[in-house]
Amino acid sequence: MIIDTLTNVLTKNSLITSFAFVGILVWVSYWISTKLTRGHIHGSAIAITIGLVLAFVGGTATGGSRGLADLELLAGIGVLGGAMFRDFAIVATAFGADLDELKKAGLVGAASVVIGVVLSFFVGAVVAFAFGFTDPVSISTIGAGAATYIVGPVTGTALGAGSDVIALSVAAGLTKSVLVMVGTPLIAPSIGLNNPHAALIYGGLMGTTSGVAGGLAATEPKLVPYGAMTATFYTGVGCLLAPSVLYLVVRAII
């Protein structure tokens, strides 16, 4: 009876449950950070990694596509971690950001978005080719997926790619997003990602909003507004370039 009532309360108040759940998860992560790694690994990096592991466990257990949020008890995670709250919090981090820093990096920031899209597209396209794909539509769709998991299906749909290829492109984009979240704090010191200028370029090159949001949170939260600012233009630019110019280039080469 107690278990049933408790389950009922937690399910009915799912968003509140998710606040409590994330609170405990963050607390455990910061405890691990200070006690077990003596502060070498940032608490938020641990929290994000645990989140991803739990998403894998949740996804395996339920067979759903929303990680832990597919467990009825933790449906609130889907709302709290969804695009609406994510974007709301990202915008809030801009409060107090340095406008001059943004102006200074304007041109390089814009260039980094275009370079980022083109670079990821062609890297993805080469991998697709290496795996035996020879038609320009499939190659372009997988290349677009290597940009972000939104550019992939948008490009695939526009070019008329098969659903299996579109699924692959989404998987490539998801892999990128997860890797950016986990990899950024590890690689940040060696690529000089410790100032607003580098963060703007990082956001433009990586482009995955979730990856950039998670990666910078785990590295240096003060850099979030700069990275997020350029990253938010990436998917739009990708959806513009991939099914048009970049596809034509691929078709010309093959």
Binding site: V26, S44, G59, I77, A167, V178, S210, A213
Partner: peptide, 16 residues
């Protein structure tokens, strides 16, 4: 922001 990003990580389609 950070708690929301942690929730975001927990709802990614890592399996896919």
């Amino acid at each position: 922001y950070i708690p929301i990003v942690v929730a975001m990580a927990a709802r990614q389609n890592v399996v896919a």
